[in-house]
């Protein structure tokens, strides 16, 4: 397996990287989403712009009341980060169920979000954690809430000439609980169904799914139905999982089973936040 030929550049800064974009250019961070597709010759970009070593994209930091994860931070760095373990442990725990150890060392959260595989793990977690995506282009920076970032099947708010430079999360208020529950597709180890959920101190919920539909989504129906977080309301809320979504189907899970799993994993996630 070998890809079509391409040029390769490794700029030192985001600004320099932006200069290279245009034409049929792909951004390379960890490469663990991109390279497998290139090897299969699913696309033939002219140039890869490697952003993995741009120092400003490699940081995890607390910035006021926000946690900031740079666009080239790897899954493993998130897993091991003390800042993340302290403030957003769900991301640290969630990182540990992505791919396998080798993939976690190289794959990046930014790359995963930009690739927007409909079964990727991060998307649900970022949605439930209230994340925002910071995008830079030659025109400047813009911030897109995760709820508006995933626009469809493998598609995002990123446009040609954009670089995903950061993912920002509000530092959760004291008493916030979050979880990510996943039914693993046994071959790919992607999420056949993944449900990330957050319980905020005011009793409200954020619930998001991956693997269920053509794009990850926040599930308002479930969120509104959690009520007083009693077992009964949670049970009822879980029954609303993925209502109105176009459910995916493949040889491993039919539409009906996937929807059923969404409900089961929704319930499991919600119950996790009670106990």
């Amino acid at each position: 397996m070998i890809s079509y030929p391409f040029d390769y550049v490794r700029p030192e800064s985001v600004e320099e990287a932006l200069e290279h974009l245009g034409g049929d250019t792909k951004i390379l961070a960890g490469g663990h989403s991109l390279l497998p597709t290139l090897k299969l010759r699913l696309s033939a970009p002219d140039k890869l712009v490697d952003i993995a070593r741009i120092a400003s994209l490699k940081k995890i930091k607390k910035d006021g009341d926000e946690i900031v994860i740079g666009g080239a931070v790897t899954h493993r760095e998130i897993m091991d980060s003390e800042i993340i373990q302290k403030h957003l442990p769900v991301l640290s725990e969630g990182a540990a169920v992505i791919g396998d150890p080798m993939i976690r060392y190289k794959g990046t959260m930014g790359g995963s979000l930009a690739h927007a595989d409909p079964s990727a793990d991060w998307s649900a977690m970022v949605l439930a954690a209230g994340g925002e995506i910071v995008i830079q282009s030659k025109k400047g920076k813009r911030t897109v809430p995760a709820t508006e970032f995933f626009t469809g099947f493998y598609s995002t708010a990123l446009k040609d000439g954009d670089i995903l430079i950061e993912i920002r999360f509000p530092v959760p208020e004291e008493g916030t609980k979050m979880t990510y529950q996943k039914f693993t597709q046994p071959a790919s180890r992607f999420a056949l169904v993944g449900c990330a959920a957050a319980r905020l101190p005011d009793g409200s919920a954020r619930v998001a799914f991956t693997g269920v539909a053509d794009a990850p989504f926040r599930d308002k129906g479930v969120e509104e139905a959690v009520g007083d977080w009693s077992e009964a309301t949670l049970e009822a809320a879980a029954q609303k999982a993925a209502e109105g979504q176009n459910i995916n189907a493949d040889h491993y899970a039919s539409e009906e089973y996937r929807l059923h799993l969404a409900k089961v994993y929704c319930k499991r996630a919600l119950l996790q936040l009670v106990n």
Binding site: P186, A187, H251, Y252
Partner: peptide
């Protein structure tokens, strides 16, 4: 876990390790 799946047209629809599940250490 395992099993080759041909569709009605004779395409092997799980012809990769992303699709064909084989036991791993934690299975």
């Amino acid at each position: 876990l395992e099993g080759a799946i041909y569709d009605d047209y004779g395409q092997l629809v799980n012809g990769s390790y992303m699709d064909y599940a084989m036991p791993r250490a934690d299975d």
